[in-house]
Amino acid sequence: MTTLEVRNLVKQFHGSERSAVNDISFELSEDEILALVGPSGCGKTTTLRLIAGLERPDSGLIRLNDRVVASDSIFVPPEQRGVGMVFQDHALFPHLTVFENVAFGLRGRKPDEIRTIVGEMLHLVGLLPLSKRYPHALSGGERQRVALARALAPRPILLLMDEPFSSLDADLRTEVREHVRGILKSMRATVVFVTHDQDEALFMGDRLAVLNKGELEQIGTPEEIFHESNTRFVAKFMGDSDFLRGRVTPNGIQTEIGLLNQLVDLPAGTSVEIALRADDIDFEIDGSGNSLIVARFFRGAFNLYRLRLNSGQILHAFTDHTKILPVGARVQARVSAEHPLTVFS
């Protein structure tokens, strides 16, 4: 069943030349987590706020559980939409205790019921012992979980999360996101999750929507997005791809570092670009090789080498951490990938 439908959404801010959100459409089914990912200014947060009702769209339609909440003629205010939201700064009410924060969205229910629900939610996020504390006496990770419990307590149709982990320290972030994904899945929550971090998007999302300059570049499963990027932007943003020029021949694609044995549905002679990630390239020392090592970055478990081909083209390649070669050495590079590569014409 479709929980959220967004159709042709457009939003332009006053005084800005280009639309923050430009004709975005997507759908979200029940129990699904959609990660909206893109660089800052791509319109992901604006999309989220439009869904929440915190911004009014210029045009387009938003439907929640078959109820139109925003269109040219309708605008349902946020308090009547039944969505929950976790804010980037958590936005816990500093004048209320943890218990009161979580109970804030449960107004109008019986006191017993409120106590039960809040207790369940706090138990779920593991904060039951802290229910009498005030937000300032909590750690960053605890605040994060209170914000989640508060947003989930009224059982929203849809949960919106705006960069919820960005205020946490890096070491805490991976731990918390695993915990949070577990909670969301156990609650069978339908979630739109905004992040600028590709790893986080790949981890959190059942599906990913990649946004760029207000437009939706691609939507799909993490695997589709990563391996079958539709556009150069997606390939670049999601996996730090390099783009190697080549020419289509009847046997494959001829490139500077050899023939790529991959058939494409393009007439011979077309010039194309192949998206290559660092794990798609291999190289070995060769005095008359086709490229030069310009830099090495030690990444702990592996080495990342930057290679310059004779044409000036830059490629990156991983080797394992024990293989250390000097900068300036000439090497022979080749495509080592055993899966089909993404080709852009």
Binding site: A52, G53, L54, P77, P78, E79, Q80, R81, V83, G84, M85, F87, Q88, D89, A91, F93, F104, G105, R107, R150, A151, P154, L160
Partner: peptide
């Protein structure tokens, strides 16, 4: 006062 506090209250069902 961060506006997100007011926005949080709106998404939790309070009018302006």
């Amino acid at each position: 006062l961060s506006p997100s506090l007011e926005e949080a209250s709106r998404t939790l069902g309070r009018t302006s």
